[in-house]
């Protein structure tokens, strides 16, 4: 299971990386915005994408839309972990095809639940 973590704050990437490691996912890579993440996703065989929303360069929602529009990546499971908490934004993410949405600050339990749920559904 190869996972890409996208967040502009290195601290948050590290926290997510640590939480994922606790859940048994040790093969993770990091990117600091959508622009860096997209080529990594296109060239690497990632199984799962965890992304923030608000980032310079390319935002997480734009990254999600680009992923869904890409023939090869369209079915990649995407979990959004973000401080963006407006209803409109959550609906926008859902409509863009997000698989899970976690608001910051979050608990290890919340992250675990969402990830397990996504894999259950994706199968």
């Amino acid at each position: 299971m190869k996972i890409l973590i996208v967040d502009d704050f290195s601290t948050m990437r590290r926290i997510i990386k640590n939480l994922l490691r606790d859940l048994g996912f040790t093969n993770t890579q990091e990117a600091d915005d959508g622009q860096t993440a997209l080529p990594m996703l296109k060239s690497g065989d990632f199984d799962f994408l965890v992304t923030d929303w608000n980032m310079p360069g390319m935002t997480g929602i734009e990254l999600l839309k680009q992923v869904r529009a890409d023939e090869k990546l369209s079915s990649l499971p995407v979990l959004m972990v973000t401080a963006e908490a407006k209803r409109d934004q959550i609906i926008e993410a859902a409509q863009a095809g997000v698989n899970g949405y976690v608001v910051k600050p979050f608990t290890a339990q919340a992250l675990k639940e969402k990830i397990e749920k996504i894999f259950e559904r994706v199968g």
Partner: peptide, 8 residues
């Protein structure tokens, strides 16, 4: 559109 607001 699409721009984030940050923590509420």
């Amino acid at each position: 559109v699409g721009e984030g607001e940050g923590p509420q």
